[in-house]
Design a protein around this nucleic acid. Structure first.
Lengths: 443, 443
DNA sequence: ATGTTGGCTAGAAGCCGACAA
DNA sequence: TTGTCGGCTTCTAGCCAACAT
């Protein structure tokens, strides 16, 4: 269950969302290109930044793991609670630039005492489709074959009285460039095709078979058009600017310096390249780490993105809880959970996940937590169970804001809790140091 | 005439010179693309690395200057004497990857005591031409117009008995890809043209008007083909991997860590992006810093690259000698010389240069040096004057090795020394701490 | 000496339904 | 339902000399 945490697409446009001071990016399209699982924390909210996760993104981008002979930054904790000052979406390679400011040492400890930020539900694109391009779609021989259901759902209706039925479509990309396509319904059997204009788009964007295109019909009756390049292995060269080692060091040193001086620093989050989100809302972190009981043997679910840009759940079992990198990052919650996946195709899914990525499937009585919780006191008893969640609210495209008016968006997807009738953290333990995560959050 | 310091093109191929373990790069072509002023130090030799210069390259690549609120690395000196362990030339964006290992604290001081590395003259391409592409050259309407002199000098001779005279040219690029062109001599008036094959090259390399192509006819009777993209302002995006701040910090932290632990680190030197070379041979540094007397008011020359990839000299006057960045990099020789340029178009030339970039024009008696030399003792008198330098050796394409057999390539521009009958450092001072820079170097 | 343009032509780009998976 | 292909058409890429600078 993920309360799609405080996505910045709430209002359609996030704070600055500019690319090089030129144009305002369409937040809805950006999120569609980023994928259904990606959410950006709210500007102004408090977040947790994980240098380890950032390091993983750099490693994935440069195809080079971190060097073993690396300087340690003992002053840099594995997680850093920060104020999120700015989020800028970039269009070329879909990524988000975030300006973070670590809280002071004192505030780091007191973070749990402060009221959590208001969260709002993210507005996912309603009418869209995503298709992976075939060889025919990208050849010079013809146009683009539109899946029938997709065309009927997303494109304006054709006048089928015409012979053949056809219209001109105008779509805008993330750069706000306009692309015109001839949409025609012809052939035997009949099918929807984009002909004139398609090839210039393909060559301009340098699309190849395997890349995906994304058409969105939004509330303003505009057609939006995004692309997602296939993750070509070995695509990025070492950037020829800085060695990957220096990049790794730079990321750590920048964060350490910012932490030591409580000054701002800037990171790039690349959703399609990064294995996992490494800036997550503070409330999501607190809930997962302090209010969820996990133990070896426990079953869980986790969301993954499908080929067609929708989500599906995979199930697995927790097989261990330990530090991913005990030498460099002791006592880190980053990917601290070792898991086994039910399906045998599981080779493609990571063997370690973080607490906030999974939904434990709890049954009563709960197993005692084997995880070294910092929490000392049991959660006050007598909290109500969760009932009354409606099935209609469970779609990933219309996540339910089930804490509206409360103090926090707990930052998880709310899928399928009703299957268990109770939130997994219905009886979490309680830490005396965090009274301000008021109980009414859970009501 | 330039003692192109110990360029790796000496043997035609440098040590590893591989791109992604795929192909062996042609060193001659790489240097031609890099430009006539670029030289790479020898693998195994000792060099001086300037974090400031490296920082300038990152700033130029990311279009972002270094932040004022930057962490200081007091342990990192402005120049670091290193052993150069490896040089790898890259082909995509012409750049060189170098692995450096700082000498130990002790060896840093003793560096001047060790014998200087052997230097050899670099072999510049003999037959080549470079042309900046016009709108017609890059349009889909036609081919490439070859300048007459260039075609006659570089291409194999046509059989002018044919009507029209034509041949097929086969050229190889840095990736060792083969490109075929139809070379024809036709039109009224007659001119050399590349027709069939040209447009695929232009589109494959994505060349636009303003970019340059480079044809080389080498000693093995092979035709080599390189490109140089115009330095488009704002070309590079922030790489969407790491913030420019983190890159700056990363470079400094990596160098500082390597210096502290005497471990290897890796840098990328991008000749076309970097304002100045920031890894230079130790001997060149020693000569410029310890054996050249400069003072305010002194006249000097400096080499620059022309549009046609040849060199020309500009003259100027030293107007000051001071730290470029007294706060961050006190006592640094990097761009420590403030200069004024003779020609009024001097706005495009930097107002600060480093000692090893210029050739002071000395006359007797020399001005007393206003620069804080560390040298204590005057140079032993009685050294011979320099005579007998021949004018024919002054071409940049046939640099003379006038220290052959000596212990060091002094790595400075020795252009036009014969004009003054004496090397500018004929009477340098002498430092007791550096006896091993034997006097016979200068004989 | 060489950049640009108009004219011409060959070949690729692109539209179509047939066919098959 | 939709990917690929052969057939046909259209249009542009590309060769040429004229012309201009």
């Amino acid at each position: 269950m993920r309360l799609s945490s405080s996505s910045s697409s709430t209002t359609g446009f996030n704070q600055v969302t500019r690319e090089g001071d030129k144009k305002c990016l369409n937040s809805e399209l950006w999120h569609a290109c980023a994928g259904p699982l990606v959410s950006l924390p709210h500007v102004g909210s408090r977040v947790v930044y994980f240098p380890q996760g950032h390091s993983e993104q750099v490693a994935a981008s440069t195809n080079k793991e971190v060097d073993a002979h690396f300087p340690n930054y003992p002053s840099l904790p594995p997680q850093l609670i920060c104020q999120l000052h700015n989020v800028t979406m970039h269009a070329n390679e879909v990524c988000a630039q975030m300006t973070l400011q670590p809280l002071s040492q004192e505030d780091q400890k007191d973070a749990y005492l402060l009221p959590a930020e208001l969260g709002t539900a993210s507005k996912q694109p309603s009418n869209y489709f995503c298709k992976t391009l075939t060889a025919s779609d990208t050849s010079t021989h013809g146009g683009f074959s539109v899946p029938r259901r997709a065309a009927e759902k997303v494109f304006p209706p054709l006048d089928y009285a015409l012979t053949p039925p056809a219209q001109e479509l105008i779509a805008r990309d993330l750069h706000d460039n306009e692309w015109k396509f001839r949409h025609i319904f012809r052939g035997q059997p009949k099918r929807h095709l984009l002909t004139t204009g398609w090839s210039v788009f393909v060559s301009a964007k340098r699309l190849v078979a395997g890349d995906s295109v994304l058409f969105i019909w939004n509330e303003k009756n505009q057609l939006l058009l995004g692309i997602r390049r296939a993750t070509r292995p070995q695509t990025v060269m070492p950037s020829s600017v800085l060695s990957s080692d220096s990049m790794h060091i730079g990321l750590l040193a920048a964060a350490a310096h910012a932490a030591a001086t409580n000054s701002r620093f800037t990171i790039f989050y690349n959703p399609r390249a990064s294995p996992s989100e490494f800036v997550i809302p503070l409330v999501k972190y607190i809930k997962a780490v302090y209010h969820t009981r996990v133990s070896v043997g426990m079953r869980f679910r986790m969301l993954f993105e499908t080929e067609e840009s929708s989500v599906r759940r995979y199930m697995g079992t927790i097989t261990g809880i330990s530090d991913l990198d005990p030498a460099r990052w002791p006592n880190s919650y980053w990917r601290s959970v070792k898991v086994g996946w039910d399906e045998s195709t599981a080779g493609e899914r990571q063997p370690r996940v973080s607490l906030w990525e999974i939904e434990p499937l709890t049954t009563f009585p709960m197993y005692p937590s084997a995880f070294p919780l910092r929490l000392k006191r049991p959660w006050p008893s007598g909290l109500p169970s969760f009932h009354g969640l409606k099935d209609d609210d469970l779609s990933i495209n219309s996540p339910m804001m089930w804490l509206q008016g409360g103090v926090g968006d707990l930052g998880a997807h709310s899928l399928n809790f009703q299957n268990f009738g109770v939130a997994p953290w219905i009886q979490p333990r309680f830490d005396a140091s965090m009274p301000a995560l008021q109980r009414d959050v859970y009501q």
